[in-house]
Design a protein around this nucleic acid. Structure first.
Lengths: 330, 330
DNA sequence: TTGTACGCGTTATCAT
DNA sequence: ATGATAACGCGTACAA
């Protein structure tokens, strides 16, 4: 096994000083063409790689970004984060950043992790997922000037920080429009309790679309915590109405899956549309709204690197459009 | 914002030398009790955290482990890796290691990533998933003395390196035994082509169990690449036999899902059992073999840290037992 | 283009 | 047995 290759090794081989090698790496334009090439050749020949720890000591930057990996909850929605993570890692690599993982069970503990990660590893930035009203994490980071991007809007103030999100309202609007086009007039909603940014957004897409079509959504919505059982319960409630909905739009695939159980025996079939286009949806033929997660991850990296590498201005937020994936159920 | 807290800050505050602080951290037993406490207090009061980059410069160790995150394929099996990753991160944190992610599309490129990660970040170790016969990655790492653990056996030589795995054969044996106990005698198998370690292992559990019960599995197996469509096709083939199987065991939930489509109309119902207990299985009530992924991840960390922190001997491999999760389909 | 100091924790050496 | 001092690892900032 060959000895460790440092900048000194390269410098010796190329017949220049260590500093020149550093210049070739970090400011190639100030090095004479011929020298630059000689140094480059030496780097390639020796297989030199910058020692990030040493670089970090001087620059204070680690070229590391961190993201939280959540425990699989009901399992269905877990794959969303999974796909996002993969995109993040891939795009990050291309931009010269490595992705570090951490876990945390609540916001307070997550902040403690930030503190540790920042202190011990000099993390360059964070990608947060699933923001909500009054998120303590973003304020903690912002106060300390730590670069971060959220996948999810800062619901209280859209200019609070740098973010990427998918337009949930547009997604449920697409779903609702699709059902309207099929002739449905009483379209029900199964979603989450008011107060969560994501939930309210998705619900708004449904109700606004009905309003725009001159229809009244009153009484056609049910709200509950996420879960298959809950989805089924809500769907049964809606179907038991005097004037039951003839189609259902749901805030998640879990809820939609439950709803499907409830409508199984109805005649004619009650279409159901879910949200997230999870593997479960694909497997059972559930029509669902698909988020461009790879894109979202890529834009997160773009924004974060813009903050890190560029001047100190906040890049414009990014709102991506989801698409409706039509399958058996609608 | 307070200044950066280094060992010097702590030393000053505690009225000792930098060296003493270092000793308190790395060799507490050689420091006088009273001094130790005073230094500890200063560390807590100042919120000191060792700068990993500086430590790494001296020790050559980064307290970082790396694992590959794979692109979501058919999406169903993706959640397996997801759960494993979470466990790995969690257990790693507890042991003082951080988890770094990387992507790679094939073994050759993955090796190139090892090289980079080792050269640039001084990675302490790797966790590999999904080993197979003649895996080039393990030999590359072993040749260079890089610590690693695989989640998956080294199929060619069980003593080749340190590994953790789940006993797939025991899982399919459980599934088969369960069906035998329900009175089935012609139990079919839908799996992957011979030659893959994991696939052969799972198939062996099925065929060995039938043999042990004095039954002949000949003609009752179908092999194909993974996927819902393929599962359905194989199931139809099996059901079209003169003496069709009355129950099916599958090598994955994807295959089982396809098989379920094929048996939908059969009377009496043909039980189907999948493998991996994915969220999809839970959602649709598919009986499936569940791998203890959290445990597996934890044991991977245990083994890796044993190699890293302890003397240079290879810890004994770990073979975990899966469990059959009974649901509607069997 | 080059010399030199520097960042921060650890290891080796020396003093008490 | 402790504690203090000096050197070291590697890449970079700044002045020469």
């Amino acid at each position: 096994m060959s000895d460790k290759v440092t900048i000194a090794t390269v410098a010796e081989r190329a017949g220049v000083s260590r500093q020149t090698v550093s210049n070739v790496l970090n400011a190639p334009h100030i090095v004479r063409e011929e020298t630059r090439r000689r140094v480059q050749d030496a780097i390639t020949a020796l297989g030199y790689r910058t020692n990030q720890a040493a670089r970090q000591m001087r620059t204070g930057r680690s070229r590391l970004i961190a993201v939280r990996i959540e425990p699989t909850r009901d399992g269905i929605n877990g794959s969303v984060l999974d796909r996002f993570l993969h995109g993040l890692t891939e795009t990050g690599e291309a931009a010269g950043y490595r992705t570090m993982l951490y876990t945390a069970t609540d916001a307070e503990r997550e902040i403690a992790v930030y503190d540790d990660l920042l202190g011990s590893y000099d993390l360059d930035g964070f990608v947060l997922t699933g923001t909500d009203h009054g998120d303590p994490r973003t304020s903690w980071l912002a106060e300390r000037g730590v670069p971060f991007v959220t996948f999810g809007r800062p619901w209280d103030d859209l200019d609070a920080h740098c973010w990427v999100d998918v337009d949930g309202a547009a997604g449920t609007a697409q779903a609702t429009t699709h059902l309207l086009a099929s002739g449905h007039r009483r379209i029900g909603w199964i979603g989450w309790p008011a107060g969560s940014g994501v939930g309210d957004d998705r619900r708004a897409g449904w109700s606004d679309t009905l309003h725009a079509a001159g229809l009244d959504p009153t009484g056609l919505a049910r709200e509950t915590v996420d879960g298959i059982g809950e989805g089924e319960r809500c769907a049964r409630e809606l179907l038991a109405r005097a004037t039951p909905p003839t189609a259902l739009v749901c805030a998640s695939d879990s809820l939609a899956l439950g709803a499907l159980q409830a409508v199984r025996a109805t005649e004619p079939a009650v279409p159901v549309i879910g949200f997230d286009d999870t593997p479960v949806a694909a497997a059972i033929g559930l029509t669902s709204v698909s988020q461009p997660l790879g894109d979202a991850a890529a834009r997160c990296v773009d924004l974060l690197t813009a903050v890190l590498d560029g001047p100190h201005r906040t890049p414009a937020p990014v709102l991506l459009q989801p698409t409706l994936v039509r399958r058996r159920t609608a």
